[in-house]
């Protein structure tokens, strides 16, 4: 696959375009009192990276996830996703970019309780423009990948916590995103299932997926290949 080019950053044309690039990103929430959740953050995530962002609560982790996930915009600074300068995009363009480039895994799973496991995994493909004929095969493939091919027709309520999170992972990777964003993916899981999910992430990374993990759990964070610590809105590489 050829590296994507960017129109507005000529210095990046020669070098491979990173999956994620933050430059001097500040996000402040108008008060009173005004809160600066992120202060001048610089971050580059090349394709195939496995990064964890760690920090105590209130350190700006959620704000970071929302920005990276195109669910929020920086107050100051630039965010490029796959080389595209996201600040100039319309809401619909951002939605399209989310659908095609990003996969989400949440702490609370966010599965649709009245739809089957297979339906849940097929949902993002509906909005991502995945060829119609490929949607179900890809969902089955993703479920097989996370070891849940025997649960496809189940409702999520009948699954264990670990299984639910694996459905969520299958849902996130079924669209073949460029980056998987995981927000406290093990926050609701016990020790054993946490280990299973982390092993799954490791396998996905080995398959070439770019992973960004946001967590307050130091043990989980250490499984990543790079660690960024957020402290009071400032980022530093550990």
């Amino acid at each position: 696959m050829t590296a994507p080019t960017t129109v507005s950053a000529p210095e990046d044309v020669e070098a491979p375009v990173p999956a994620i690039e933050l430059r001097d990103v500040t996000r402040s929430f108008p008060g009173p009192p005004e809160v600066q959740a992120l202060k001048g953050v610089n971050l580059t995530v090349p394709d195939g990276d496995y990064l964890s962002i760690i920090g105590p609560s209130g350190s700006g982790k959620s704000t970071m996830l929302n920005l990276l996930g195109l669910l929020d915009r920086p107050t100051v600074g630039e965010y490029r996703l796959g080389g595209v300068l996201t600040s100039t995009l319309t809401e619909d363009e951002r939605a399209a970019l989310r659908a095609r480039q990003l996969g989400f895994v949440f702490q609370a799973f966010h599965l649709m309780s009245r739809r089957s496991v297979l339906d849940n995994v097929m949902l993002p493909m509906l909005y991502a423009g995945t060829p119609r004929a490929e949607r179900e095969p890809r969902a089955r493939e993703a479920l097989q990948r996370v070891g849940l091919s025997h649960r496809m027709g189940f409702l999520p309520g009948r699954l264990s916590g670990g299984e639910r999170q694996r459905v969520a992972v299958a849902r996130a990777v079924a669209t073949r995103p460029r980056v998987l964003l995981a927000d406290e993916p093990t926050g609701n899981l016990d020790q054993t299932t946490t280990g299973e999910i982390m092993a799954l992430f490791e396998e996905l990374h080995a398959d070439g997926l770019t992973l960004v993990l946001i967590t307050h759990d130091g043990g989980v964070a250490r499984r990543a290949h790079r660690r960024i610590r957020l402290t009071d809105g400032r980022a530093e590489e550990v």
Binding site: M1, G82, G83, R100, A128, G129, V173, T175, P177
Partner: peptide, 25 residues
């Protein structure tokens, strides 16, 4: 399974055009 990346977005289209049949109809 080899997870392939989604095609890179190129402005001004941002993302590749989806054929009408595969859009949200």
């Amino acid at each position: 399974m080899r997870l392939r990346r989604a095609p890179a977005a190129v402005r001004p289209e941002v993302v590749e055009k989806v054929p009408a049949a595969d859009r949200f109809t």
